[in-house]
């Protein structure tokens, strides 16, 4: 159960990062008007309650849901995704994506354009400028994004309950059960909570340590 929680949170974080970085990179190079339109598009779904959005995904992913109807229409055939780990990971990615995107976008927006020119001036083409200047300088944003996605993913119980159908039991579910569920036992619940908190803290500590080595910048 510990393993499943951390594995899923890890997948969700990694997928969020892989989706967010390219989007943030492209958007950060657009004009301010395009950027603000993008921000609105990003924020609007977040005004809807988290629970409602997850229920919506539930009906999308159902065996006779929107997704499968679409797939049948396209002639691909049904997939059964609801109540699997994949569905839980998808729910995490969807819900926590903005928390990854925004910090990365902010860092990239603030990146001094003259640094890119300096890099080009010193002989680096686009790819090398990205690898040697843009990415290292965006690490603080990546780190805070990773933190902000990983921590809630590890402890979520709503997503796994609704989209995992109780099959994928995560730490969050376990804790919830001890306090509100049938297996009422606050002592075990508290113990698991503390253990989880410690593990998360250790993870964060290691990550920040690792991050400090990579970037010598004083956060800007």
């Amino acid at each position: 159960m510990f393993a499943a929680s951390f594995r899923l949170a890890f997948y969700a974080t990694a997928i969020c990062l892989l989706i967010s970085y390219p989007i943030a990179y492209v958007v950060s190079r657009e004009t301010p008007q395009v950027q603000s339109v993008f921000m609105v598009l990003l924020m609007v779904p977040m005004w809807i309650n988290f629970l409602l959005r997850t229920y919506a995904w539930m009906s999308i992913l159902e065996n006779n849901g929107l997704l499968n109807k679409l797939l049948v229409l396209l002639g691909i055939g049904k997939v059964s995704i609801i109540n699997t780990e994949a569905a839980v990971a998808l729910g995490m990615v969807y819900n926590y994506l903005p928390f990854m995107l925004l910090p990365i976008l902010t860092v990239l927006q603030k990146l001094d354009r003259s640094l890119l020119e300096a890099s080009s001036d010193l002989g680096a083409n686009g790819v090398r400028t990205f690898l040697r200047v843009v990415f290292p300088l965006s690490l603080p944003g990546v780190l805070s994004g990773v933190t902000m996605v990983f921590v809630p993913s590890v402890s979520t119980f709503v997503i796994s309950k609704l989209l995992g159908g109780g099959k994928t039991l995560l730490l969050g579910d376990l804790i919830e059960m001890q306090f509100l569920g049938n297996a009422y036992n606050p002592y075990i619940g508290s113990a698991v909570s503390i253990v989880m908190m410690l593990i998360v803290l250790v993870c964060m500590f290691v990550m920040n340590k690792f991050g400090d080595g990579g970037e010598e910048t004083s956060m800007f």
């Binding site: 001094d112 003259s114 640094l115 020119e117 300096a118 001036d121 300088l137 004083s218």
Partner: peptide, 13 residues
């Protein structure tokens, strides 16, 4: 050609 930029543009990392 190499340039010395107005605000130096040194790499902070």
């Amino acid at each position: 050609v190499n340039t010395v930029f107005q605000k130096y543009a040194l790499f902070p990392h």
